[in-house]
Structure formats: C-alpha cells, structure tokens
Amino acid sequence: MDRTPPGDKLSTPDGWLEQHGDVLYRYAYLRLRNREAAEDAVQDTLLAALRGRQQFSGASAERTWLIGILKHKVSDYWRRAGRETPLDTDAEEQENLLDLLFDTTGHWRTAPSPWNDPDAALEQSQFWHVLSDCLAGLPPAHARAFSLCEIDGLEGSDACKVLDVAPTNLWVMLHRARLRLRQCLENRWFQRQPTNDA
C-alpha cells in the first residue's frame, strides 16, 4: 500500500477518523439506528476512501467527500437487509394495524387527540429520545422505508429502487409508519404533557 504522505488537500486516514469519525458515525447511526452497523459503515467508508483517495478531487471538502461514500455504504446496508427480510413479512400485521385504528365503516376507533403546542416539543431534548425510541419500534420494513424517505431524504423513485417496491407499496409502508409513529408520540409524549388549563 502506498504510504506516501498525503497532499495538503487531504489529511491522513488517522486524521479522517480523528476529525470526521464522530460526524460519520452520527450520520450512519441516525440512518441505520444500530450501533454495530453504523460502526461498520464508518469503517467501510474509511477503507473505501483510503483505496480511492486518488479520486478525491479536492473540489469538495474532505468531509463532504467522506459522507458521499458513507451514503453509498448506508444504501448497501439497506439493500442487504432488504434481501434478508422479505418486505411482505409484516403484511399481515399491517392489516391488523388498520383494523386496530379504524372500525369496519372506516371511522377512527379512537380519534387522534389534540396535541398541545407540538412545536414546543422540538425544543426539548427528551422529545428526541422519545422520537428515536418510536422510530426504533417500527416494524423493520416500515422503519426502512420511513428512514430512507424522511431521514435520508431519498426521492421516492430512489427509495423504490433501494427497497425494490412499486410506488404504491412505498406509500402504503410510509402511511403505516406514520400512523404508528403518530400513535407512539401521542402515547409517549403528548398525553404526558401538562395541558394549558390556566
């Protein structure tokens, strides 16, 4: 392996880990929500960067370049995970979710309750722990769809490719994920907040 000192535009791999390790890890963790998978993604990213460092143009900042590689590693992870757990495993459970929330005439069994000043929640660190827990509690296929589209910011058409599903399937998965997240936030956050009764 070529160990020549890097040019002034690119620091050493040790330096990458030092300077960008936590940022890369955070990026990966937020998308994969799994410590080991996130650590592996960081390692794979730095290895790929080391092998491909000739291709670093210097035009983009080093961190942007590394995050670009990491994005691919995250997609690879989902693609592998997609093969390991077929998407329709929780199809049955999805039906149950709708039956749980809506009666046979299509009305809410329990209407969504009013949330008191939801945007104030965004200022409280504890809220983010609750949201994180709610995301982790989603069925795997829904979590994957939601994470790709809403957290990773993939376009619908790209998410469909990664998940290997038709757009209508994706919309169904996102709908179920949102119903579940809504319920989870209501139970675990909004119903526990004091109301404004002067």
Partner: peptide, 30 residues
C-alpha cells in the same frame, strides 16, 4: 417537521460518539 429536524442533527444533544473500542478497531483495519 420533527423528522427533518431530527435528520439535521439536532440529535447532537444526545452526544453520539464512536466508542474507543470501535475507534481502535477501525484504526487497525486502516
């Protein structure tokens, strides 16, 4: 709105960091 903010890294308050163990492992691999 919440998810977008979550994605943007407001989560930094949760202080997610690579563990020393993971750091060592990655350095060895490199």
């Amino acid at each position: 709105r919440a998810t977008q903010r979550f994605a943007r890294g407001r989560i930094e308050e949760v202080s997610l960091q690579l563990s020393d163990k993971a750091r060592d492992r990655i350095l060895r691999a490199l």
